[in-house]
Design a protein around this nucleic acid. Structure first.
Length: 552
RNA sequence: GCGCCCAUAGCUCAGCGGACAGAGCAUCGGUCUUCGGAACCGAGGGUCGAGGGUUCGAAUCCCUCUGGGCGCGCCA
């Protein structure tokens, strides 16, 4: 990658300076390159001299000048200059930039792919909403975060598996079964009371009706317990397939749908408990079984088996992570959880440590809450009361692409407002259209070239020399760096900003440079440029899980 | 009480310890004889919540405080 090439050049210069005695033999700090905000400072800048100055007590500008004189010539770099108070600024060569158009055309949709040294086998688990009701707006955030990260990690060279953990066991499922049974009885015209901890959403009534209409006969004259579990399981399946369909609508898919129930059936639950027991992490007190988190620096211990003998959510999650790390042997596991699971993070890391795994291998992204508003007024979201705006409703209103872009454009760390009225009203000047429009515009130019029978296969990219052209190329070359940045920080929101920047430089280029003109040679060169830009735009959109329309 | 997250332009938000703090929307003003005006160019607008500290250099790191959110269950 270009950035690494420059870092290498700088490192060599520093080593050379030390060899010849211009610099004392101190250990070099990690050499970082930044992108200067001001274009006058070149394409890349390093503050290495400023950092060195502290350690060796020399004037930073002197160090900068010494290093500049030792930087070897390279095909990429044109100018290297020292600048006050002690920066080294690199400017790329125009002819090298122009040649990158060919490189991008050759790479096609693989442009942007990199091979990170740290890339390994990674599992990313996200959404994993309890299948007791439809997905609501807040779930969309995790879904889009996860699927985009998966795309980017794959582009960075990771082997990625996407997983949805289905909580199909435990108390909530029990409550779901009993609620559905009550609704079912009511549909039959019988007296039935909803359980106190039940699910009161209207969808439960619809579900009961649907089951009655479709499978009602099957449950005649059966013992109550069998009816409860029978229609419960049926309802569960229907909800899960609805969740799948809703996610698909958003362009989110999974490689594995993992059943919590299978952890009990498969023996992982027993295996991990005895393993923790052997490690001395399990104790009995107050009639329950506890995981001794305090031994690992936690504030308090946590119950794994209740006094009634049933496992807690925490217990099965321990088994689940045992399965991820020790059975399926993922190198890295990423979990995307909502802010309401915050308290779960540190004890889960403690468990992982207790299993003999470096807790750093477990990365948990907490996505902060989404508060829903309708024209500024807060909309309460509660699955139990049934007052929810479903993800499906949202996608149908604003569209999958706009939905993805909107959720993606904020850091997971901060809470966001989602105003439904605003999302609808602004959909026309949503930045997503701005980016997609750039792509459609290029497609239109290429169509025109085809209609006029212009074959630009032999176009000479060295004719691309003007500022708007080179600015566009510079921006296109940034995609691999974005992939690297996002893969290492796990912060995909950067991509939305990159996409807008890329579209901006394209639109600006378009305004200033006629692509198809009477100058045949220049036309061919620019068609190549524009086609490369289309590749980069579509790749960027695809990484975000969005469509790259040929026209709109 | 303890822990995590947030506070940057009128609004929604970016900002990787570095060179005059950025974008979109909104406001105001320009650009249409040529490839898609869902476009382009420009202007105004900021004591980066407050106060200390570290540093050659702090929106960024540390401490204190204020305001908001979330979490600290034999719930999931």
């Amino acid at each position: 990658m270009l950035k690494q090439t420059l870092i290498d050049l700088l490192t060599q210069a520093a080593v050379e300076a030390q060899r010849t005695g211009k610099l004392p033999p101190v250990t070099l700090p990690e050499i970082a390159l930044e992108r200067p905000q001001n274009a006058e400072h070149g394409d890349y800048a390093s503050s290495l001299p400023l950092k060195l100055a502290r350690a060796i007590g020399l004037n930073p500008l002197t160090i900068a000048n010494d290093l500049v004189s030792l930087i070897a010539p390279s095909p990429e770099v044109g100018q290297v200059v020292a600048a006050a108070p002690g920066f080294i600024n690199f400017t790329l060569k125009s002819d090298w930039l122009a040649r990158q158009v060919e490189a991008i055309l050759k790479a096609g949709e693989t442009h942007g792919n990199i091979k990170l040294e740290t890339a390994s086998r990674v599992q990313i688990e996200f959404v994993s909403v309890n299948p007791t009701g439809p997905l609501h707006v807040g779930h969309g955030r995790g879904a889009i975060l996860g699927s985009t990260l998966a795309n980017i990690l794959a582009a960075a060279g990771y082997r990625v598996e996407k997983e949805y953990y289905i909580n199909d066991a435990g108390n909530q499922i029990d409550a779901f079964y009993r609620s559905l049974y009550a609704r079912y009885q009511q549909c039959l015209g019988k007296e039935a009371e909803m359980p106190e901890d039940g699910y009161f959403g209207g969808y439960m009534v619809d579900l009961a009706r649907e089951i009655m209409a479709g499978d009602g006969d099957r449950f005649h004259n059966l013992p109550e317990a069998e009816v409860v579990s029978g229609i419960g399981r049926l309802g569960l399946e229907k909800i899960i397939s609805q969740i799948k369909a809703d996610l698909e609508l958003l362009g989110v898919s999974f490689d594995v749908w993992f059943s919590e129930q299978s952890l009990h059936e498969g023996g992982q639950y027993q295996a991990v408990l005895s393993r923790l027991q052997q490690g001395g992490y399990i104790s009995e007190k107050e009639g329950a079984t506890w995981f001794v988190s305090t031994a690992l620096g936690e504030d308090k211990d946590n119950v794994v088996i209740r006094s009634d003998g049933s496992p807690t959510y925490f217990a099965t999650d321990i088994a689940y992570h045992y399965d991820k790390f020790l059975k399926r042997k993922f190198d890295t596991v990423i979990n995307i959880w909502g802010a309401d699971h915050l308290g779960h993070v540190s004890r889960m890391k403690a468990v992982v440590a207790a299993l003999g795994i470096d807790p750093e291998q477990l990365k948990v992204i907490i996505s902060q809450m989404v508060t829903l508003r309708r024209g500024g007024e807060l909309v309460r979201v509660s699955k139990r009361s049934g007052d929810i705006i479903t993800l499906r409703e949202l996608v149908e209103e604003v569209g999958a692409d706009a939905c993805r872009f909107f959720f993606l454009s904020r850091t997971a760390d901060s809470q966001m407002n989602f105003d439904l009225e605003l999302a609808k009203k602004q959909s026309a000047d949503n930045p997503v259209y701005y980016v997609q429009y750039a792509h459609a515009r290029i497609a239109s130019i290429l169509r025109l070239a085809r209609e006029r029978g212009i074959d630009y296969e032999d176009g000479d990219v060295s004719l691309l020399t003007t500022e708007p052209e080179l600015t566009l190329i510079r921006k296109m070359l940034l995609l691999p760096e974005m992939v690297e940045l996002i893969a290492s920080t796990l912060e995909p929101h950067h991509l939305t900003y990159y996409a807008q920047d890329l579209a901006t430089v394209f639109h600006s280029f378009y305004k200033q440079c006629q692509v198809v003109s009477s100058n045949k040679a220049l036309t061919k060169a620019r068609l190549k440029l524009v086609k490369a830009a289309k590749i980069v735009l579509s790749r960027t959109l695809h990484l975000m899980g969005m469509t790259a329309p040929e026209s709109m």
